[in-house]
Structure formats: C-alpha cells, structure tokens
Design a protein around this nucleic acid. Structure first.
Lengths: 143, 143
DNA sequence: TAATTTAATTGTAACCATTACAATCCGGTA
DNA sequence: TACCGGATTGTAATGGTTACAATTAAATTA
C-alpha cells in the first residue's frame, strides 16, 4: 500500500463512501495494475481472492469510483470499456495490432482552445491509435 | 453537392469503392449533417428517402467509408458510436447535459510527444466533456 | 449483546447496439 | 436473355452492460 493508495482511502472517507472488502480489493487492484483493465480482466483476477465476487459489484464499484473522480473511464473503442486510476495528465495510445494501451505524458492543460471559453470543461482526453514499437518490429521481421 | 462531396466521390473511385444509391445517400447525409449522427439517426432520416433501407447497410457502408479513411468513428462514450466526415484537425466536446457534440479547432499535430517517437501514430483524437453555454445558462436560470 | 435498520453484494434476466449470416435483389456483361 | 458478382435486406445471434429482487453483511440503536 503506497502513498497513493492511502490518499485514495482518505478521499473516499471525505466523500463518505464506505469501503467494503470487495471495493477495497478492486481499488487495490487498480492501483497495482496500471494496464487499463477491462471489467472482465478485473473479474478473472479478483475471483482468485474472492470466489463469490460478482461482475455487478465490479460495475457498481467502478461507477461509484468514477463518479467520485477517483477512476477514469477509458472508451477508445466500443465494446471495450477500460478503467484507470486517475493520475496526472496523460494521454492514451492504443496499439491497433496487439491492443495494448500505453500511457504517454502530455500537457493537456496547455491546449485549451479559446473557442471553448464559454464552455465548462470537466474532462479532457487525448487518444491516439497506431502501432507500438514491438508490433512495428514484428512486421519488419516478417518482411 | 459542394466541392467536398465531389472530392469524396473521386477518392472513392480511386479506392475502387462502388457507389450504390444507398451509399451515395449515406455519404451525402454525412456531408450535409455535421452533427456527428448515430446509426439510428441516419437510419430514421434516410428511411424517408429510401423506405427499404436497412441498418445493416448503414453499418456496412460506414465501415467501408471508415476503412477508406473518409469517415471518422467517434466513440466518446460507450453505447453511442457516432460518425463524422473526416475534415481538418478538430477536437470534440460533448455536453454532459444535453449530449450535443461540438467541434472545436485544435492543432493536434503540435502535440506529438517525443515519448512516442518509436510509435507509428495513425489516428489522433481529442475529446472533452463538460457543459455547453446553453446548458450552463439554463442551470443559472434555475438558481 | 440482541434487535433493527440500512447499505452492499449477488445472480438472473433484460436490454440494446452491433455483427453474422443466408437469402434476395440489382447492375453490368456476354 | 441468361449469367455472375457484389450490394442490400431481414433475421437471428452475440456480448457487454444494466435493472431488479433476493440475500447477505454492516452499522446503528436500545
């Protein structure tokens, strides 16, 4: 349990969200797996610890955490909602070949267009798609 | 039929994609409705012209046009895939209250992070969420 | 501690956008 | 006209997500 995790716990206490065993494990999983997991992945991995765990609980918990602003919902493409612990500004790069999602640093705040001065911006997302270095080299090997 | 539409036709000819009556109407609809429509919206509107039109045809056509690079798939949130004719670089702002998607100009090319120098970037997306001016003023009216 | 109330979890069924697939239709060609 | 290949259509299947009611756990009160 690193400092980040403690901070999350504290934030939940402030926002009056009770932390059950299941919710704790889900939150713990997200802090330890920054791989932008799907509900399916979370479900498979946590079932080992909590055999009775239900997917509905995972959906409920992620919704609560997202509403509390602790978790970010990533929907680069349909049929594959992924979740991420909210950290500092970064963009997401999805490899079209292997499907892996990479984080990359980007100063999103620097790109507030003046055209949106009359809008209230709550959330900013930068999604790139393409090929990751590993898949690029694989393609070259085949040639 | 403006110049843009003619250009699209030409591009399709180059890419050897035949233009049936249905495909022509769908493409025409997209060039005339820059509201980022869903398949449902396209279906409802075009049914007036083509009573026998099927949703499968719309899905097929949009997939072909997207693969050809003429149409951009917008997935800001799950369960609501939207489509857009590809134009110059711009970001999308979705109002969390009324659901409208607004375009705003942004120089996406200027924000290529050096960390992605070993990646091949095929597609860049900038999605913002928040409240549009109209919904903001409505909230103020209620107060 | 026991009883009571409230919230969280679970499993099943429903939902709904998208896709798969087979049958039909249409346009061009010999 | 007959044929062929691609486009369209309608229906059924898919699968991630949500709704809902029952069960369980936790918190509160006496």
């Amino acid at each position: 349990m690193d400092a980040t995790f403690e901070n999350l716990m504290q934030e939940l206490k402030i926002k009056n969200i009770s932390l059950s065993h299941q919710r704790l494990k889900i939150l713990e999983y997200l802090t330890q797996n920054h791989c932008h997991p799907t509900v399916e992945q979370i479900f498979i991995d946590l079932q080992k610890d909590i055999p009775t765990l239900s997917k509905t609980t995972i959906y409920n918990t992620l919704r609560i955490l997202a509403e509390a602003g602790l978790v970010k919902v990533i929907t680069i493409e349909d049929k594959e909602t992924r979740y991420d612990i909210v950290t500092e500004n970064h963009g997401h790069f999805k490899c079209e070949s292997c499907g892996t999602i990479f984080d990359f640093p980007i100063d999103i705040d620097s790109l507030i267009p003046e055209d949106l001065s009359t809008f209230k911006i709550n959330d900013k997302n930068v999604y790139f798609k393409g090929l990751c270095p590993r898949c690029l080299s694989n393609i070259n090997d085949i040639k």
